[in-house]
Design a protein around this nucleic acid. Structure first.
Length: 939
RNA sequence: GGGCGGAUAGCUCAGCUGGGAGAGCGCAGCCCUUACAAGGCUGAUGCCACAGGUUCGAUCCCUGUUCCGCCUACCA
């Protein structure tokens, strides 16, 4: 039998137990055929990531459910893994290389990818180590990575199938472009932020010099690409301009004035410059009016040749300054003013995005999204809390085709090849010799010559196919070039046999592979045991920030490729904010590090805090004080265990094993335990984590420790061996039950105590989680007399300020013999709890003179305090009490005399109020009686 | 502009089928009682944002208002 240390030291034991669990294979599914399955796939954290509060909360909730279901006997799997996080990871490694003055272009694609893999093998397991610190009971033998071989097979299979069904296609559209990351971004990857900018008023003269029109713009540099000015057809100010030509300042090009309903007459001047190549609205206007599109900003955010000689090559912001300056000199700039508007930024590098027309790959999600909506409507998937359903529907109903190509290197390269030798199917617009694969200028291996231009142009310069492919960067493949999509790598053109074929350089959006995660991690496209056992998974636990990025797409892909939803429930948890309600961010400097919390308070206290905070549908304000509070709770468990263990050591182990023959307090605490376990199971089933935590807290601390352990002390310190044995057996039983109940929440401390209790065999993880047995309501109501006697006497002690050292004599008048005998049977415990030398309880008890009184249900408690008692104070106290009672009586009298209430309220409610009324009435009478007696003595 | 959520004790928040509001922390008083001072006992504190409505009865349901968050679209 072990002894427990004086206080609980989490840091000394957490790693030890985690290792034991993992090495014993306890995190693996049990694989018994007769068991129901329970499975969670982890939302894969970025491989570059390190554990933040969101992860900590997310992992804790998943671990609680996993450990709980596992102990309930389910065949349980929590499958872990990480995400390759395309842009994020590429950026991290690029920054690392930049410190050594290496750019990815200087070392080339293959070498750069190699560098990322090296980085991953060195740092990629950081986050999984941190999850282990949290106690996460993931089956690490099944850990997956979105770029590993199996998952890459899944990605390619899905791409090819969708392509063959015509659901993946290429198109040339305006998209969000990050000039720094040099890639397209999906709508979701753009973060809008309100920014104070300026709006400029610029005069556009009519071509016949008969006047001018003033437009308002926040982006003057884009005027170089204007192909029209639009006004509202109903705008009387501008009707006369419609159809006329304007002479675009700085360029001299003639552009028409068109009429379009989309123009808001109230905004700016009511005249809008139209730049179809660089603005989404303008693109739409351009389409409606058949306007040409003129690209004046390039992929790297610099002005193109189209912008004109004076501006070409300038950065877009330098160009803005120069344009404004030039306009001022021409006196065409009427003025400018402050303007608040929201500006899109790259979610990875925060660079202002630039809308650009490019050719990208898209997934047609129109059919898939409809099925995904139906799945939720038909309750095949339940979203918790329900309020998120509307958000889900709202987004899914307005979903646009998903842009899946990214112009970066780290990720799943698109399995499509092009042949430069084959004539294009449709021919180019010009029908001439233009080649359709374009290369960005990059230096050749000898560093002297710049490689630039089209494929055939470069070959003509004498470069070989390999030289071009290895040292250049393909920036665009025309829509006219025929793609060849394949499950396996292609080495020659299937049409002409040319070996000089080029693979599409783009990679897939990271979320493409994430969308397959619930089935790709289980082995798909192979037909595996895991897939059969665990798909569909039971529940997905995630934050709302990736509901659309990830959850919605998983549902679409799961339905498409597995014909079944990927999970039955989705639990959306809160965002963890700081104690002031601010989002945690590095720039604000308010980030709380979970590992720091674990180091200072222990993983169990930290976990318990997170769960206790996790009320549905509301953000969490994290406060360190509360973590400290829950550390006290962990310590309380520790100390209670120490008490019981000490007694066990004295009494001998066989005591604990004795058959249970509980006395009234024992029956009471067992019943209360059943109430608690009933709550915990019910709340966890409903994902009401905070309620489950609070039920446990309440029971363990305030019922078990504060009441039962205290009540047990006379028995434990007394010399009745039979009573001692019974009490100890009950203490041990409830302690063990509580530890098991607590284990999913606080795995480490419960394991540590478990081993001290049992000797060193068997993990608490292998125990069966308790299910509620029936309550003992007789015991509960009988115990009420004991409990209220103790509270009543304590209250008198406290309020009358009686010295704690004073031993009391107490007299109790009971309503009947039953109450008296309940009290007398538990008298030793009551005496101890209130520090009384003598307590007489009977029906016939009379009140000693000079007593303070406490009136309880079916009891009057008299505390003789002659000499100590200040009669005036006591009368005042009782009067105050009576006032309160009278108030309630008055309220109830009114209520009960209301016929409408009696007739329409449910009988139970009326009866309850009647009973309360009677009780209060009795109490009031007794209190009044006592006041009168006191006043008599006083006078 | 559209949508969602919040307003309850000094602070942070529970309160899910409408029946006179709870916790933790904090505060005040007493106590180092042999599990625990990281503790025990006792106590104080609430126009449940505001105004209407529905109902026998509203913190809870409905409408409006104010103030805070968040999401989403647009902002030329």
């Amino acid at each position: 039998m072990n002894e427990l240390n004086k206080s609980y030291e989490p840091s000394q034991i957490e790693d030890k137990w985690y290792e034991l669990w993992e090495n014993s294979g306890y995190f693996k599914p049990s694989k018994k055929a007769d068991q129901d399955s329970f499975c969670i796939v982890i939302p894969p954290p970025n491989v570059t990531g390190s554990l933040h509060m969101g992860h900590a909360l997310n992992a804790t909730l998943q671990d609680i459910l996993t450990r709980w279901k596992r102990m309930l006997g389910y065949n349980t799997l929590w499958l872990p893994g990480t995400d390759h996080a395309g842009i994020a990871t590429q950026n991290v490694v690029e920054r690392e290389l930049a410190k050594q003055k290496i750019s990815r272009h200087s070392i080339g694609r293959d070498a750069f990818i190699q560098k990322i893999w090296e980085w991953k093998s060195e740092y990629g397991s950081r986050i999984t180590h941190q999850l282990k610190k949290m106690g996460a009971s993931c089956d690490w033998s099944r850990e997956r990575f979105t770029l590993d071989e199996g998952l890459s097979d899944a990605v390619r299979e899905v791409f090819v199938q969708l392509y063959e069904e015509g659901l993946i296609y290429r198109d040339n559209r305006l998209i969000n472009w990050c000039p720094r990351c040099h890639t397209a971004l999906s709508d979701l990857e753009v973060e809008y932020e309100d920014t104070e900018g300026r709006i400029y008023y610029i005069q556009y003269p009519l071509s016949d010099s008969s006047g001018y029109l003033t437009v308002a713009t926040t982006r003057p540099e884009t005027m170089l690409g204007d192909t029209a000015v639009a006004v509202n057809p109903d705008d009387s100010r501008y009707k006369k301009f419609i159809g006329k030509d304007l002479k675009l300042p700085l360029s001299g090009r003639l552009i028409p004035v068109v009429a379009d309903d989309a123009v808001d007459q109230e905004f700016g001047t009511g005249a809008v410059k139209v730049t179809p190549a660089h603005d989404f609205n303008d693109e739409a206007i351009g389409k409606r009016h058949g306007l040409p599109s003129l690209q004046v900003i390039s992929e790297d955010g610099k002005m193109t040749a189209e912008a004109g000689k004076r501006y070409a090559g300038l950065d877009r912001y330098e160009c803005r300054r120069l344009v404004l300056n030039d306009l001022k000199e021409l006196t065409l700039l009427e003025g400018d003013r402050k303007h608040l508007h929201s500006v899109g930024h790259c979610y990875r590098c925060k660079t202002t995005i630039e809308p650009l027309q490019t050719i990208q790959w898209y997934v047609d999600v129109s059919a898939m999204s409809k099925e995904a909506i139906t799945a939720v409507k038909d309750r095949k998937i339940t979203i918790v809390p329900e309020s998120w359903e509307n958000n889900y529907y709202g987004w899914m109903n307005n979903i646009k085709d998903w842009c899946i190509s990214r112009q970066i290197w780290w990720g799943h390269q698109i399995p499509v090849w092009y042949c430069p030798s084959c004539k294009s199917e449709h021919g180019s617009d010009q029908g001439d010799m233009i080649d359709h694969i374009f290369f960005e200028p990059v230096s050749t291996p000898d560093g002297t010559m710049l490689v630039t231009g089209t494929y055939s142009g470069l070959r003509a310069k004498g470069l070989t196919h390999e030289q071009i492919i290895n040292n250049s960067k393909i920036i665009r493949v025309s829509r006219d070039v025929k793609p060849r999509c394949s499950r396996t790598n292609i080495t020659e053109c299937p049409d002409c046999g040319s070996k000089d074929i080029i693979r599409d350089p783009d990679v897939l959006d990271t979320w493409f592979s994430s969308a397959l995660w619930p089935f790709s991690t289980l082995g798909w496209p192979k037909d595996t045991d895991d897939l059969r056992s665990f798909y569909p998974t039971s529940v997905l636990i995630t934050g709302f920030d990736i509901l659309f990025f990830w959850v919605a797409r998983m549902i679409m892909m799961g339905l498409k490729f597995k014909k079944e939803v990927p999970f039955k429930d989705v639990y959306i948890h809160a965002l963890v904010r700081d104690s002031h309600g601010q989002k945690m961010s590095k720039s604000r400097g308010n980030v709380v590090d979970p590992l720091d919390m674990i180091a200072r308070f222990g993983a169990d206290a930290f976990r318990f805090s997170l769960v206790a905070f996790a009320a549905q549908g509301r953000d969490i304000r994290f406060s360190e004080e509360r973590v400290e509070g829950y550390r006290h709770f962990i310590n309380k468990i520790w100390n209670a265990s120490k008490f019981i263990l000490g007694n066990l050591n004295n009494a001998g182990y066989e005591c604990a094993a004795a058959p249970l023959n509980p006395d009234l307090p024992g029956r009471w605490i067992i019943s209360r335990f059943n109430a608690a376990i009933e709550d915990v199971n019910r709340y966890l089933e409903a994902y009401r984590f905070n309620e489950a935590a609070s039920s446990i807290y309440q029971f363990v601390w305030h019922e078990f420790c504060d009441w039962y352990i205290e009540l047990s002390k006379p028995a434990m310190y007394g010399d009745d061996p039979e009573l001692k044995k019974n009490t100890l057996s009950c203490l041990v039983r409830i302690l063990k039950g509580s530890l098991i109940m607590l284990h999913p929440f606080t795995p480490f401390v419960t394991e540590e105590i478990w081993h001290a209790l049992q000797g060193s065999t068997g993990s608490i993880m292998l125990q069966r989680y308790p299910m509620a047995e029936s309550r003992d309501l007789d015991a509960e109501s009988a115990m009420e007399y004991v409990l209220s006697t103790v509270s009543g006497i304590r209250s008198l002690r406290g309020e009358l300020n009686i010295a704690p050292s004073a031993e009391l004599e107490v007299y109790i008048k009971t309503a009947d013999d039953n109450v008296a005998s309940i009290l007398n049977e538990n008298m030793a415990a009551i005496k101890k709890m209130v520090k009384a030398s003598e307590i007489i309880a009977s029906v016939g008890t009379t009140k000693p003179s000079g007593s303070a009184v406490c009136v309880q249900k079916d009891m009057e408690i008299y505390l003789p305090v002659e000499g100590l008692l200040d009669i005036k104070t006591e009368v005042g106290r009782l009067q105050k009490e009576r006032e309160k009672i009278e108030e309630s009586i008055e309220f109830l009298t009114k209520k009960l005399s209301n016929e409408k209430f009696i007739n329409s309220a449910p009988k139970a409610v009326v009866d309850k109020d009647r009973a309360r009324f009677e009780e209060l009435k009795e109490k009031s009478d007794k209190v009044s009686e006592n006041i009168m007696l006191l006043e008599k003595i006083g006078s």
